[in-house]
């Protein structure tokens, strides 16, 4: 237990106005671990994910990624708020995949993938393009590099979005309900891509409703409800023999 966790969240609180969404989340994610967060709508799981890369600022507590506190710097016992530019630098090691894909619609698939590597990580264009093509091939879209997002199906768009997130060589990947906006017959191709990544030792935090994915790919399942983590453990324990009644009633709907 001496390995330093990649993600370390302590007592994270977040409210939107009077609506308290996160009520004290503690979580450690080890390097290479695949954590799946389950829970009903409104349980705060997406918000927590967005707090990890500071898309939402937390109100209380702290979040560290690779030992660096997100949004702040502890210096000689005093905590300093980071500038926008410094926060942007912190985000560069975290890849994110969104529910609505959020591909850049005015760029082709390959341009989407190489935008951040060239513009943010200062890779050489030829090098970025080579890596970009490799990543598109890895998600099964080698022949679509010149297609615009609108010319792709939802599943293909999400796979381009995954390739785009991988292109920055992230230390951590965040998936925010990556299959919730997809037609049922397209969910499988995206989950297959994600399973592939999980088996390659990438650290992943996945917010999803796909119990099957949690069972097969997760190292650990977190169950959230009402802004709390109410149960966590290996998938066969949490999914097959949940202890908490809320977990049990949630899971019963998926049988």
């Amino acid at each position: 237990m001496t390995i330093q966790p990649l993600v370390r969240a302590r007592n994270v609180h977040k409210a939107f106005g009077h609506n308290e969404v996160l009520k004290g989340i503690d979580l450690d994610v080890a390097p290479g671990e695949v954590v799946v967060i389950l829970g009903p709508s409104g349980s705060g799981k997406s918000t927590f994910l967005r707090c990890i890369n500071h898309l939402e600022a937390i109100d209380q507590g702290s979040i560290e990624v690779e030992g660096e506190q997100i949004g702040f710097r502890l210096d000689k016992g005093r905590l300093h708020r980071l500038s926008g530019r410094q926060i942007a630098a912190q985000r560069r090691k975290i890849g994110m995949v969104f529910q609505q894909f959020n591909l850049f619609p005015h760029m082709t698939a390959l341009e989407n993938v190489i935008e951040a590597p060239i513009g943010v990580h200062h890779q050489k264009p030829e090098e970025a393009r080579r890596l970009g093509r490799e990543l598109l091939a890895r998600v099964g879209l080698a022949d679509k590099e010149n297609a615009y997002p609108r010319q792709l199906s939802g599943g293909q768009q999400q796979r381009v979005a995954i390739a785009r997130a991988l292109a920055i060589r992230p230390r951590l990947m965040l998936f925010d309900e990556p299959t919730s906006a997809l037609d049922p017959e397209l969910v499988g191709e995206v989950l297959a891509t994600m399973r592939d990544l999980a088996s390659q030792g990438l650290t992943m935090i996945v917010v999803t409703h796909e119990i099957g994915f949690a069972r097969e790919a997760a190292d650990r399942v977190i169950f959230m409800d009402g802004g709390h983590i109410i149960e966590e453990g290996p998938p066969d324990q949490v999914l097959a023999a949940p202890r908490h009644p809320r977990t049990r009633s949630f899971l019963s709907r998926f049988v």
Binding site: P40, G42, Q99, Q100, Y148, R150, Q151, S153, D176, E177
Partner: peptide, 26 residues
């Protein structure tokens, strides 16, 4: 020039219910 990516559309992604950016959602 600025609408070139709109042409030749095939599939329009299915929008998931309400709360597309999921602020207070989930």
């Amino acid at each position: 020039h600025y609408t070139r990516s709109d042409r030749g559309s095939l599939a329009v992604p299915k929008k998931a219910g309400a709360g597309t950016t999921g602020k207070g959602e989930a």
